Lab assay of single mutants.
Amino acid sequence: APRKVEMRRDPVLGFGFVAGSEKPVVVRSVTPGGPSEGKLIPGDQIVMINDEPVSAAPRERVIDLVRSCKESILLTVIQP
């Protein structure tokens, strides 16, 4: 079942996760003590960023979407 995860941007750590460059977009790592800790799990597949589906989106679009979130971000993720 999809999970909705909302995180506030940390001034130092950002959102505190690293996503892979393949499709679908998969969470590779979560920064300890960062905003994503306890919310995202490595292996989570990101299916939506805010209200935009990203399963088939180019990597550049995913990066732009994350960067455009100055304060908070809403991710919809699934464990494949």
Results as ranks from 00 to 15, higher is better:
2 P>D: 09
2 P>L: 13
3 R>Q: 05
3 R>W: 02
4 K>S: 09
5 V>G: 00
5 V>M: 06
6 E>H: 15
6 E>F: 15
7 M>Y: 01
7 M>D: 00
7 M>L: 15
7 M>H: 00
8 R>P: 08
8 R>Q: 15
9 R>Q: 04
9 R>V: 05
9 R>L: 07
10 D>C: 07
11 P>C: 05
11 P>I: 06
11 P>L: 07
12 V>Q: 14
12 V>L: 14
12 V>D: 14
14 G>P: 00
14 G>T: 02
15 F>W: 10
15 F>E: 01
15 F>N: 01
16 G>P: 00
17 F>P: 01
17 F>V: 02
18 V>K: 08
18 V>C: 11
18 V>W: 04
18 V>F: 05
19 A>E: 09
20 G>K: 09
20 G>F: 07
21 S>T: 07
21 S>Y: 10
22 E>C: 09
22 E>S: 07
22 E>I: 04
23 K>Y: 15
23 K>D: 11
24 P>Q: 03
25 V>F: 07
25 V>S: 14
25 V>N: 05
25 V>D: 03
26 V>D: 07
27 V>W: 00
27 V>S: 00
28 R>A: 12
29 S>K: 10
30 V>Y: 03
30 V>Q: 01
30 V>W: 02
30 V>C: 08
31 T>D: 10
31 T>A: 11
33 G>D: 13
33 G>W: 05
34 G>S: 14
35 P>K: 03
35 P>T: 03
36 S>Y: 00
36 S>C: 11
37 E>K: 06
37 E>W: 09
37 E>T: 07
38 G>N: 09
38 G>I: 02
39 K>M: 11
39 K>N: 09
40 L>F: 01
40 L>A: 01
41 I>S: 15
41 I>E: 15
41 I>K: 14
41 I>F: 15
41 I>N: 15
42 P>L: 08
42 P>V: 11
42 P>Y: 05
44 D>C: 04
44 D>V: 01
45 Q>Y: 08
45 Q>I: 08
45 Q>H: 13
46 I>M: 04
46 I>C: 07
47 V>W: 07
47 V>G: 03
48 M>P: 01
48 M>F: 13
49 I>A: 03
49 I>W: 02
49 I>Q: 00
50 N>C: 06
50 N>F: 07
50 N>D: 12
50 N>L: 04
51 D>F: 06
52 E>D: 09
52 E>H: 12
53 P>H: 12
54 V>F: 02
57 A>T: 14
57 A>S: 13
57 A>F: 15
58 P>D: 10
58 P>S: 15
58 P>F: 04
59 R>T: 12
59 R>P: 13
60 E>C: 10
60 E>L: 07
60 E>T: 12
60 E>R: 11
61 R>I: 08
62 V>N: 02
62 V>C: 07
63 I>H: 14
64 D>V: 03
64 D>C: 04
65 L>Y: 09
65 L>D: 03
66 V>T: 06
66 V>P: 01
66 V>D: 02
66 V>H: 02
68 S>C: 09
68 S>K: 11
69 C>W: 03
70 K>Q: 09
70 K>W: 04
70 K>A: 08
71 E>A: 08
73 I>M: 13
73 I>Q: 03
73 I>H: 01
73 I>Y: 02
74 L>T: 13
74 L>E: 14
74 L>M: 15
75 L>E: 03
75 L>I: 08
75 L>Y: 02
76 T>Y: 14
76 T>S: 11
77 V>W: 00
77 V>Y: 01
78 I>S: 15
78 I>M: 15
78 I>R: 14
79 Q>W: 05
80 P>N: 10
80 P>W: 04
